[in-house]
Nucleic acid binder design. Structure first.
Lengths: 344, 344
DNA sequence: ATCATTTACTTAAACGTTTCAGTTAAATCA
DNA sequence: TGATTTAACTGAAACGTTTAAGTAAATGAT
């Protein structure tokens, strides 16, 4: 099975291999006559030539490849998309990249350090990392001048471009909204709160809103686990076990809310009649479910587009300039919240 | 920024580059002394050497890369994962591939023929194509000996391995189930019915079940659009416009059901009280929603695993042997169906 | 002691591009 | 007219691996 290479095209067109390369790449510093250009293109078409991008990468050190790392929530858990948020984000990244002639090298991230490989191995032009990772590995990444965009990460390091949202402000907005509806005891339900993480920021926003309103932050209103449907179910059980002390909950992910609502419903506790919920993300799902979720909307599509934009910009720029991009949020009112009047 | 290459390792370890290569690849035909092996590994560690996979691909014609093509339902539509099914499938594929040391080259597929590029360009070891595509392009693919696995496609061509499910039988099972619950007028709601496509098979199963039971296949019970939430909403409107003639519906995708249920609810029509629904796929979502969906369960994780298994098996085998894999289905009973007694 | 085999390597030619540094021949300029 | 520039190419050395073929020393068989 002989591949047709650039030399075959050259022979067919009666020119040298380099000329073919210049034609194909439209190299701006080289001048090619209209005639040769046509002959080359004809040969390309005739022989069905498609350039081998591996060879091109090797030679030029550009690969037209973007590495994308998506967190795999649990080590053994097969579905990294336990949160549909990632699917939507990935989809947007893929689409945007493709429009610009880039392909995606996709990998989930567990405990191992496979993203190092992705970076160094294939000469990717840039890397988009979704979520945060242990700092030691990030340091490894820094030393290999590949541009890196961190999505939803609060690693404050000027060597990485970042793109995120106003997590704290969004959480504040959500909590305030519940307070505005008359709620005084509001649960906070989220994945794990690591220092400087997204959930931490959201917790801060939640606390701020409570304090502004003169309400106390209650330890027993705090629920923390993993960001998935299962923990939503668990949180519901915990809520019931603790005696249903809150009339509302701010939940940091739609998928968590789904589990929470389901868990409650199994015990005949209804949303929003018995407890109101505001959640976060506004994934596609949030409007499909019953009750539909009142949630903090973030533009996931835009997040993906920006991530690609940033990474390609950085790849093309010669000198490193740090960029940060924070996307706006807004609250979308749907059916998971009701006004609350304290029974007298 | 000088990359550390195999030569640097060789120099450090005091051996030739090929020896390093042999050590790294554990080439079974070469014998290496324990001493050199250790020296090489030490040098690798010391210099932080990571092999360049592009060069390796170029030289060996193996890339440890699997191309994955996921359908993008509509040309302009950004989210190829309009159906969460694809996200779950992709996730499984990614995980399985990674366990075996393979990475994914991901691309959506629109009208353009980008999957040709993926195949030829990067020397992918195999391609997994989800859904069906215009035959002409498939012919192009055939001529470049890359193993190809078609997922959920009824292209009957022994040059492609295939993996799928008993679509017809599953639909029959679903429809029968509704009939067993007393329903006599059952709608069929699906995406477009292309010749030989998955939806066509499911339609056949639906028809079979009706005919077995002596029921007539009614034109006005047939709804066809695109496989997404939006069409679910539309179908609901159509159902209402046509005068709610059916007491049940077999819907060929969970995501369609979600839209359908939502669309009905907006008009105060309830599932399962007013109309029963059995759908297909059993995506993660199907159990999260209210009412939870009675649906034909397929093992999406297994589908992904099998796809990778097949493609890698084919990549390693010297001679081409056609394989086909059909996964079993089962009906999962949840809350979207009720018994129906014809009012007298 | 001699020849054949095995072990443990090395050399060098691919793999298919890009790109720097020439090399012509024609066009332009003084 | 001769010198200089420009347009249009070509040759060959990278890029970082793999791998077939070769070699020298050590081992084994006769």
């Amino acid at each position: 099975m002989q591949r047709v290479g650039i030399k075959d095209v050259a022979k067919e067109a009666g020119v040298s291999a380099s000329t073919v390369s210049y034609v194909l790449n439209n190299t701006p510093t080289e001048s090619i006559s209209e005639d040769t250009r046509k002959r080359v293109m004809a040969a390309v078409k005739k022989l069905r030539y498609v350039p081998n991008l591996n060879a091109r990468s090797l030679s030029s050190r550009r690969s037209n490849l973007i590495g994308v790392l998506i967190p795999q929530t649990e080590p053994g858990k097969e579905f990294m998309f336990s949160n549909p948020f990632y699917g939507e984000l990935l989809s947007s990244i893929e689409y945007t990249a493709r429009q610009q002639g880039y392909h995606l090298l996709l990998s989930g991230t567990q405990e191992d350090h496979c993203y190092l490989n992705i970076a160094q191995n294939r000469d990717v032009d840039g890397i988009i990392i979704v979520g945060t990772y242990p700092g030691e590995n990030l340091n490894e990444l820094k030393r290999m001048g590949v541009p890196i965009v961190l999505v939803d990460s609060y690693v404050m390091d000027k060597d990485f471009h970042t793109i995120g949202i106003e997590d704290k402000e969004g959480a504040r907005m959500a909590t305030r909204y519940l307070i505005g509806k008359g709620h005084r005891r509001i649960a906070f339900i989220s994945g794990s709160i690591r220092e400087n993480g997204v959930n931490m920021k959201r917790y801060q926003g939640y606390c701020d809103a409570l304090q502004e309103a003169g309400l106390t932050v209650d330890e027993s209103a705090f629920y923390s686990g993993t960001v998935d449907y299962e923990y939503g179910l668990t949180a519901a059980q915990q809520y019931l076990d603790r005696g249903r002390q809150q009339t509302a909950a701010f939940i940091t992910a739609d998928v968590l809310s789904m589990g929470f609502i389901k868990g409650l419903r199994e015990q005949k506790v209804c949303v929003p009649d018995d407890i109101s919920i505001v959640s976060f993300d506004d994934v596609y799902l949030a409007n499909m479910t019953y009750p539909s979720l009142t949630t903090v909307h973030q533009d996931i599509g835009e997040k993906g587009r920006k991530a690609v934009e940033l990474v390609l910009e950085a790849a093309k720029a010669k000198e490193h300039r740090y960029t940060e991009c924070i996307l706006p949020l807004r609250l979308v009112e749907r059916d998971s919240v009701r006004e609350w009047r304290e029974p007298t």
